[in-house]
């Protein structure tokens, strides 16, 4: 199974109709710009980046919560924009960030977990449906009796387990996980990450994993894409990305991870902040914060160039910087 995608998005944020009349022009915000990647069956592609970089928008476009304004998303050979491909939607499900908001507070857990099965009419027999729900609950480490409770009776970690059970109930092959552990405490985060890895090996799932936490990504991903201001700046195998980050932004993110082993040692803080996406910088979006930026970075937008198989970087300075890199690392 492949998710081949050349998706792009174009979000229009406009002031109210009335204000349009008051000679204010329409303004558009380019949340995601010409992002392309593919995910192979059984792998975990992680998208990382800071808030506002467009990683969640990409996830939402893939599952159909937003329609891409440009480009297309191809799932198992079929274009998802094509109405014919609607049945494919069953095969991809999503796990949301906030386990307190993603479960309907008025439904019992049993009904929540069964919803995708009912919606797609997979099992019509009540007894078999109940058995399937119990099986799903057991699969995520809950007991069948939990099905009779309401979401508020569970802790954050248990709710995320319910969320996972719901996502799994329609037998999907592909799960989009939007920051599934960022609302959880560390000890619970470890439980959920382990569970997700277990399920992946047992059920042969493919994940798209959205996160801002690089340490979590390093743990779960096989490949990693780094996004900055709506564009993919680097994509590579996880091992390679963390050992030899090539884009200056990737390197900055990795340096910013607090290191528990080197206690008391300060990270090298990066100057500057993420620019306003309504007025992105010219050329390479990262150039105002980049230590290697030159005149060309300011004027030209770098393309994502494949350097080795399976990895690509969008940086013009990369070629002339190679020598410099090895000495500075």
């Amino acid at each position: 199974m492949r998710v081949e995608k050349i998706g792009r998005d174009f979000d229009v944020s406009r002031p109210w109709l009335n204000r349009v009349l008051e000679r204010e022009p329409r303004r558009s915000l380019c949340a995601v710009n010409e992002v392309s990647f593919s995910i192979r069956k059984g792998e975990t592609l992680a998208l990382v980046g800071e808030s506002g970089c467009g990683k969640s928008t990409v996830a939402r476009m893939i599952v159909g919560l937003h329609t891409p304004s440009r480009g297309r998303i191809v799932f198992d050979g079929a274009d998802l924009a094509d109405p014919q491909s609607a049945p494919l939607r069953r095969r991809m499900q999503m796990i949301f960030q906030d386990p307190y908001a993603s479960l309907n507070p008025r439904w019992r857990v049993r009904a929540i977990v069964a919803e995708p099965i009912v919606a797609h009419g997979l099992v019509r027999d009540q007894a078999r449906l109940a058995a399937r729900v119990s099986e799903l609950l057991a699969q995520v480490g809950l007991v069948a009796e939990d099905g009779d409770k309401f979401p508020h009776e569970f802790s954050g970690g248990q709710r995320q387990r319910i969320s996972i059970a719901r996502a799994l109930s329609a037998n999907p092959e592909f799960l989009v996980c939007d920051e599934p552990t960022s609302a959880l405490d560390v000890s619970v985060q470890a439980q959920i990450l382990n569970l997700m890895k277990d399920l992946q090996t047992r059920l042969g799932l493919t994940y798209l994993f959205i996160s801002h936490n690089l340490a979590v990504v390093a743990h779960i991903a096989t490949r990693v894409g780094v996004m900055y201001l709506g564009s993919l700046v680097e994509i590579a195998d996880a091992k390679q990305l963390f050992e030899r980050p090539r884009h200056p932004y990737t390197r900055m993110l990795i340096d910013a991870i607090p290191d528990l082993q080197m206690t008391g040692k300060a990270r090298t803080p990066v100057a500057g902040e993420v620019p306003n996406p309504l007025a992105p910088p010219s050329g390479c979006a990262f150039h105002p914060r980049c230590p290697h930026a030159d005149g060309r970075c300011r004027s030209e937008r770098p393309e994502l160039i494949t350097q080795e198989p399976g990895s690509a970087v969008a940086c013009q300075a990369i070629g002339r910087r190679v020598g410099l890199d090895h000495s500075s690392l």
Binding site: G156, Q158, V186, V188, A190, A215, A218, I254, I257
Partner: peptide
Amino acid sequence: LMSSIPKLGEGRDKLAQIDGA
């Protein structure tokens, strides 16, 4: 708590976890 924190440059197997909440 300390061992359940994911760290860079660690083996790719399971994280140590504390069961329950």
